[in-house]
Design a protein around this nucleic acid. Sequence first.
RNA 1: GGGGGCGUAGCCCAAUGGCAGAGGCAAGGCGCUUAAACCGCCUCCAGUGAGGGUUCGAGUCCCUCCGCCCCUACCA
Length: 822
Amino acid sequence: MARPFDVVELESKWQQRWRESGLYEVDNDDPRERFYALCMYPYPSGAAHQGHVRNYTFGDLVVRYQTMLGKAVLSPFGFDSFGLPAENAAIKAGSHPRIFTDQRIEELKSSVQKLGAVYDWRREVHSHDPDYIKNSQLIFLKFFEAGLAYRANAPVNWCPGCATVLANEQVNGDGTCDRSGDLVERKNLEQWFFKITDYADELLNEVDGLEWPERVKTMQRNWIGRSEGAEFALSVDGQPDVALRVFTTRPDTGFGVTYAVVAPEHELLPTLTTPEQAAAVSELVERARGASELERTASSDSGAGLDKRGAFTGSYVINPFTGDKVPVYVADYVLGTYGTGAIMAVPAEDERDYAFAQVHGLPVVRTVAPPEDFDGGAYAGAGVKINSGFLDGLDVDSAKKAAIEFVVKNAAGESKVNFRLRDWLVSRQRFWGCPIPVVYCDGCGIVPVPVEQLPVVAPDDVAMNKSGQSPLATHEGFRNTTCPTCGGAARREADTMDTFTDSSWYFLRFTDPFTAGKPFDPTEAAKWMPVDQYIGGIEHAILHLLYARFYMKALVDVGLAPGLPREPFKKLFTQGMIRMGGSKMSKSKGNLVAPQQYYDSVGADGLRLFHLFVGPPNEDFDWTDQTNDVIDGCARFIDRLWRLAELEDVVWRDTADESDLAIRRATHKTIVRVTEGFEKWGYNTGVAALMELLNALSKWARDAHGAHRATFDEALDTMCLLLAPMAPHVASELWARRHGDDQFVHAQSWPTADPAMLVDDTVTMVIQVAGKVKARLEVAADISEEAAIAAALQEPSIAALLGGAAPSRVIARPPKLVNIVP
RNA sequence: GGGGGCGUAGCCCAAUGGCAGAGGCAAGGCGCUUAAACCGCCUCCAGUGAGGGUUCGAGUCCCUCCGCCCCUACCA
């Protein structure tokens, strides 16, 4: 595209001037009202792609807009610089992940700066900086001290491709690794956990008060997965010392329990298995152990394969409600990790139990009367209790309460709340992460590394591999140490922490990156927290946001963040994703579109305007063949504005006339529309409003009728101000050309509309008959209801339609509409 | 299976329950030009996925269905 100015030169000039001006460097004691705007800090994967562009454009808009509203806006940037891709790349290249990472950081930083996004770079943070590592470790030790970090042998998700353990959150629904796509295996290992489950209730309850997208809030609630019910014991027939504890959300269905099921991992399974059934049970257990999650969850609807996925143990338990003996099965549809790992099965009121019962020929006893027209198997809805002894006639909710009372008295029961949320497994058998700061001593056990010895930093000469063993474990110099307590020989922990631990507190470090010796000074952090506006992708709706919320609460509780709010992010905005050819634009899909070519042609401003204009920010959009044309269109808008500002052959009039009034009104209405766009994340309509104003202004200024200077200046200055957050470079340049080279448009106040300019003298009033538009009338804007009705009825075409008959009803919404119902 | 979102012109998208069109892209035309591009001006195009309901009035609210997308899932 031929541009009326040198876009590359202009943009780099202003980027330099912003840096030099320090306009967006804010100090913690800034007297202005504070505002903390934050985009999720990125993993440094190389030069920016359109997803970054979109993200940081929105973030920059918030920063520049809030600044023009007179606030001190904290706008920090940093890098989530630990992680697998760098380690894998280093293994491949035979180099060190730090080299790779630092390179990528420079690339991403440079392309973000070329976007014209402004940050307080003095506060830049990298997760892999020794200082950051030290503080991450200090937090770990505080968690350990408080009992929030613990070590346990646990079945874990092992990804053979990544050669590491994964958190539950990193395993896909089909049992594959979120990152590599490999099938995840189950292994028992000694691992470090964070006790996020201690906060399950708080994490759930406080979701309600967050100004977050409903969708994200729902996802958080579902992930935490609170279920209310009862836990009680089933006594085992013939084994008086053994009881099988089960959890249910439907204690009211107790009379319908026709069998029980334990998970293949259940500790009582050997006790329950009779010699006759041993072969069948062990076959089932082997199958379940070897089976991937994928196989294990397959065909759950159809019931196909269920015969092979369950086996009778040979034992019976007593249904405490009926006193009946019911068989105990082992089946892989019951999970060892949820509830007690055992269930009471009620085929009549649970679909999975029903499908299993059908296959294994187990009886079905209804305890809730289904609706008359019900013809399915299990009925899980509301209704009246039947076949349920003392519960008969009750509704489900009352019956639940009564049944819980019953099991409390008769079956060692209690009402119980279970969560789907598990403790957070933070150990990773990888090199490029924050080392876990503990040592193991034969005499003293687990010993935390003393704070004054932090950070524990990995040596550079570690052989990285994918053997599944932590690379640090192979480095004798690192591994062998002395016990801080007894001075004897000890071994360092060789695992590193999940990188989600780094991203769980970086927003706090940003508030106070200068304090040494601790993660942040609470009084400094309290000046900015919580983050007023957090911006990021929907892909972080569960993991990152949940972990960060947990960290915030835990940091307060362990005393590192006294006085700070327990929720870190007040408002959250999740941007829509960019699709291309039907799938998400991503590095792994190889369908990235780099911004550089656009920086060179339409400029960052043109590209920014495109991302703002293409549609609502929270909605996805498709990058198509037509997209480049639309981007050109956005640059064309900038060019048209430029030419108008530089237009020389305007006929200037000395006095204002009616046409000036129209332009002034258009100008002030545009202020309202663009401001609303900023407040309601409707940038697309804001850009459209600016285009509209430019069209009107351009036509008016070029007309032989001529323009009045003050009107023109007001309109053009207003456009520069409104565009300052959206297209900051060209807005800066035009402002400086109009007001002097030392003038910054971004140091100006956001314009406010004159209310007098927002009302028109006359309005087109629509006259409807029975809801259909029949006539239009130009009326005074302040017309009364009576006058509007009178005018409508007097309108000849309306009078003719009514034929002299009195209308049965007239609805007037002056001055816009009168609706006559004949 | 559960949850959420979307469906308006050839395309992207606007419309506090009140005239379906603000803006852009594409297409076509005119002007400018030796010509083209650029630039300026103009034109064209849908009755809102389907069907019900509420209302004086529905793209908008409610219900059913269709299509596409995202998230989630043996969680007892």
